[in-house]
C-alpha cells in the first residue's frame, strides 16, 4: 500500500452537486462534478461530508468509464443522510476517497457472472454492471438477481430494463406486493434457484443486508460456486476510512481498508458469529 501523509487523507475536497434525481420515496441519486477526473473501481466508496453534519461512507454508484462525474445513491435514514439527500444542484459536498477494495470484475472475465443484490445493495453493484456491459463479450452468461422490499422500492427500474436488453438476465423479486405486481414475490435466494446459475468459471458478487447475503451465499455454494469465487460487500460504521478510527473492525479486518469487498472465503469464519 502506498503511504499517504498528505492532509487530504483526512480532509475532504468540496465538489459541486450538478444533478439530483429522486429514485424512491427516500432515496436520491446525486451527481457531483470533480475538479479533475475521479477514477475509481467498482465497489469502492467515498466519505461524503455535509456541512455542519459530518461524514458518512457512501458507495460510488456511477460508471467507472465516466470519471468526469461522481455519482452517489443515498437513502435518507438519519439526520446526515437526510441533509445529504436534500442537497440540490449547486450545493457543495465534501468528498474524500475513493477508498477500499473493489469487485473483481476483470478476474471474472471469461466466465459467467452472477450479481445478487438486496435493497440498496444494488447501488454498489451498479458500477460493476456498467463495467461488464462495456465489454459484455468478455463474459459468459451474466445474471442479475435483485430483491427489493416492495414494487415501490425497486431501484434503477428503467435501467434494469435497459440492462436486460443489453444482454443481462435480470430477475427481480419483492418481499411483498399487491395484485398489480406481476413479478416474483419472495426472497432473492429463490431467484438463484430459478436462474441458470451453474458452477464452473462463475463469479458471484453479492451485496445487501447481511442476513440476505448469508442465504445468498449458501444458495450459491449449493450450486457449486466455491466461496473464493463469491465476493460480498460488508458495511460497518466508519469515521475515518483509513484504518485509524477503529469503528469498522470486523474480527481482524478493517472494512474500510481490507474491504468493503471481500472474497467470501476470507470472512467465512466470521460471518456466522453474531454481534461481531
Amino acid at each position: 500500500m502506498e503511504t499517504r501523509a498528505d492532509a487530504g487523507v483526512l480532509a475532504p475536497e468540496f465538489l459541486r452537486v450538478t444533478g439530483r434525481r429522486k429514485e424512491l420515496a427516500d432515496t436520491w441519486t446525486l451527481e457531483l462534478e470533480p475538479r479533475a477526473e475521479f477514477p475509481f473501481r467498482p465497489g469502492q466508496f467515498n466519505m461524503v461530508y455535509v456541512f455542519g453534519f459530518g461524514e458518512v461512507a457512501i458507495s460510488i454508484s456511477g460508471d467507472p468509464a465516466a470519471p468526469g462525474k461522481l455519482v452517489h445513491t443515498v437513502r435518507a435514514v438519519g439526520k446526515l443522510t437526510t441533509a445529504l439527500c436534500a442537497s440540490k444542484a449547486g450545493a457543495q459536498l465534501g468528498i474524500r476517497g475513493p477508498f477500499g477494495t473493489s469487485w473483481p470484475v476483470d478476474e471474472a472475465a471469461g466466465g459467467d457472472v452472477v450479481l445478487v443484490a438486496g435493497g440498496l445493495g444494488l447501488a454498489p453493484l451498479r458500477p460493476a454492471v456498467y463495467r461488464i456491459l462495456a465489454e459484455r463479450e468478455k463474459f459468459g452468461r451474466v445474471t442479475l438477481l435483485y430483491g427489493a422490499r416492495s414494487p415501490e422500492t425497486v431501484l434503477y427500474r428503467a435501467e434494469l430494463r435497459r440492462w436486460a436488453r443489453a444482454g443481462i438476465d435480470v430477475r427481480v423479486t419483492v418481499d411483498a406486493a399487491d395484485a398489480r405486481w406481476r413479478g416474483n414475490v419472495g426472497v432473492v435466494t429463490r431467484l438463484i434457484d430459478q436462474a441458470a446459475v451453474t458452477a464452473g468459471a462463475t463469479a458471484a458478487f453479492v451485496c445487501g443486508p447481511e442476513i440476505m447475503m448469508r442465504f445468498a451465499v449458501s444458495s450459491l455454494t449449493q450450486r457449486g460456486i466455491p466461496t473464493d469465487r463469491i465476493s460480498v460487500s460488508m458495511e460497518r460504521n466508519m469515521k475515518c476510512a483509513v484504518g485509524f478510527c477503529g469503528h469498522c473492525q470486523y474480527g481482524p479486518e478493517f472494512i474500510c481498508r481490507d474491504g468493503p469487498v471481500f472474497p467470501f472465503r476470507r470472512i467465512e469464519h466470521l460471518f456466522r458469529i453474531r454481534e461481531l
Partner: peptide, 23 residues
C-alpha cells in the same frame, strides 16, 4: 486508538469544525 469525529458548527453557521475525540 479508536476515535470518533464530531462536527461543531458555529452559531452563524458559516464555519464548522471537524473535531476528533477518543472513542
Amino acid at each position: 486508538f479508536c476515535s470518533t469525529v464530531e462536527d461543531v458548527p458555529n452559531l452563524s453557521l458559516d464555519r464548522s469544525d471537524h473535531v476528533r475525540t477518543w472513542d
